[in-house]
Nucleic acid binder design. Structure first.
Length: 501
RNA sequence: GGGCCUCUAGCUCAAUCGGCAGAGCAGCGGACUUUUAAUCCGCGGGUUCGGGGUUCGAUCCCCCGGGGGCCCA
């Protein structure tokens, strides 16, 4: 690995600071040392050193001699005494000191001539506190453990959003919140899994490459299987495979994995996003609501130690307790100040829409207008977690009819901070009705409706074997992180899709 | 897909009416044995996103293209 970097004429095009650092790397090699050693002594992590000496008074010598490592994030070199702040992976920082008296003139000069901000170093020495009381390792020996040939950005200014996303590794180096997000995300994933397992759900993995895409209304990505000489779709939802599991007798089943939707990209939508999707036999959408609330609250506790979540803007929000539940028609009624029910005619709804400056398409039915009124007038106002229930059948064409009103469906959307976080249904399990609805959607597809889906005959065959009454729920994991942290989706996804530079 | 804004040193940002392209941090040289965004003295660093045009002269004005953001569909 220790070959020369590149042709000299190429180096001439590099920024000055990289040329300087590359020259330092070359100098290390010329001295017969290794800028990227294989093995590094590390007797203690910085955390361990800190934990072992929590409250030393200033100017103390402990007699403890340690080998520590870390990235140099801060340098203060004076004539005969140098200070460097080291940081390790968990964010713990510890000061290293190099004095002329201990390391000698040559080693001190080599330190000054070699080490830049961003380099990884190893320091061997005694744990002490400085006169100002800073816990430190007073070096009697040091070595480079990895030379950074690219300078770190200024730590006094925020990186631009674009750089943070495109070079997440730099974001992670300089911004503690970026590292906290990675850990919060891991904590949420772990908690979701643990909670589901605790409740007796079985985790499965279903195909991401599919011959027929389905389970949601979204445009898919298309790819090519050479061996089969056929196009395949990246899945837009795992739903139809998870339902097959329910048919097969896996009565509580879930999957946490990636879905792909070939649609818009903005602060709340990513083409590749993580979802928890789950089905439970003999459950209804009410059961799924309780499950969803408990999952979200468990994740809040895992990240914040309480159901009170702290957003990036400093605001705090309690997601605890039970959550509000409203019907779609009730929520719209409240917003327009007039009672709206499934009996309200399209004509009357159009007048209400006009009165509230909501534009409608001429073709829309009463149910579609009610949904539009909700999305334009209500959704963004729902800050507290709210289950919005009982959508008209026209806008949930694949969902079973409501037990009390055949014009509605047993479906809810969970809205928090103005955005949809999860959705659930009492699932349609009648194979005859399911076929009729899917055929209807396919007909719309043939009529040019890109969101309508093709018929999945194998899924219908599965239903024909008999699927028990089932509740189903899907929750966006990225959205959940957004709910907990108040950040945009491009912050919650470690490496979101970006256009090539 | 449409409209508006934006792209300048490694990073974050300035640059008047079209007139020598600057600052802070970072870097380089020097001083400094207790610093904490160290301090002090000195110095270097630019394809102003790319291409074209107007002009004596373009970071600035115009056109085309690219990246990013916001709003709308």
């Amino acid at each position: 690995m220790s070959t020369e970097h590149a042709a000299p004429d190429h180096d001439q095009e590099l920024p000055e600071q990289m040329r300087v650092r590359l020259a330092k790397r070359a100098q290390v090699l010329a001295e017969g040392r290794e800028p990227y050693p294989v093995v590094v002594e590390r007797s203690h992590t910085l955390r361990q050193v800190r934990d072992a000496h929590p409250d030393l008074p200033p100017d103390t010598a402990t007699g403890d001699v340690v080998d520590v490592t870390g990235r140099v994030i801060f340098l203060r070199n004076t004539g005969k005494l140098c200070f460097a702040t080291l940081r390790e992976g968990d964010g713990t920082e510890l000061q290293a000191m190099l004095s002329l008296a201990l390391v000698g003139e040559d080693e001190l000069a080599r330190w000054k001539a070699t080490v830049d901000l961003g380099d990884h170093v190893h320091v061997h020495g005694e744990v002490i506190t400085s006169r100002r009381g800073e816990l430190s390792v007073m070096a009697d020996a040091w070595e480079l453990t990895s030379k950074a040939v690219r300078p770190l950005p200024s730590t006094h200014h925020e990186l631009s959003e674009e750089t943070r996303v495109r070079q997440r590794y730099v974001d992670l180096i300089v911004r503690p919140q970026a590292r906290e997000m990675v850990r919060a995300r891991a904590e949420v994933m772990r908690t979701l899994r643990a909670q589901m397992h605790e409740r007796g759900f079985t985790e499965v993995e279903t195909p991401m490459l599919q011959l027929v895409h389905g389970g949601a209304t979204a445009r898919p990505f298309v790819t090519r299987a050479n061996a089969l000489d056929t196009d395949l779709y990246l899945r837009i939802a795992p739903e139809l495979f998870l339902k097959r599991c329910i048919v097969g007798g896996i009565e509580r089943v879930f999957e946490i994995n990636r879905n792909f939707r070939n649609e818009g990209i903005d602060s709340t939508h990513s083409p590749e996003f993580a979802m928890l999707e789950t089905y439970q036999a003999y459950a209804t959408y009410d059961v799924m609501a309780d499950l969803t609330r408990e999952l979200v609250q468990a994740c809040a506790r895992a990240v914040f130690g309480s159901t009170v979540v702290r957003h990036a803007d400093g605001s705090e929000h309690d997601l605890g307790g039970t959550w509000r539940s409203v019907t779609l028609h009730g929520a719209v009624s409240e917003a327009v100040g007039v009672e709206v029910t499934p009996d309200t005619t399209a004509e009357d709804l159009r007048k209400l829409a006009a009165a509230h400056d909501v534009a409608l398409k001429d073709s829309w039915s009463a149910g579609e207008i009610v949904l539009e009124l909700f999305e334009k007038l209500v959704e963004h106002t729902l800050q507290e977690p709210t289950f919005v229930r009982d959508y008209p059948i026209e806008v949930r064409p694949l969902t079973r009819q409501h037990r009390d009103d055949p014009r509605l469906t047993e479906a809810w959307d969970l809205v928090v901070f103005g955005h949809e976080l999860a959705t659930a249904y009492s699932e349609l399990v009648d194979p005859v009705e399911q076929r009729r609805r899917l055929q209807e959607q396919a007909r719309l597809g043939a009529a040019g409706d890109a969101e309508a889906m093709r018929l999945d005959e194998d899924f219908l065959r599965a239903l024909e074997y008999g699927m028990p009454p089932t509740g189903g729920m899907g929750m966006g994991v990225d959205r959940l992180l957004m709910t907990l942290t108040g950040l945009g989706i491009r912050e919650t996804i470690l490496y979101p899709l970006v256009r090539s530079e």
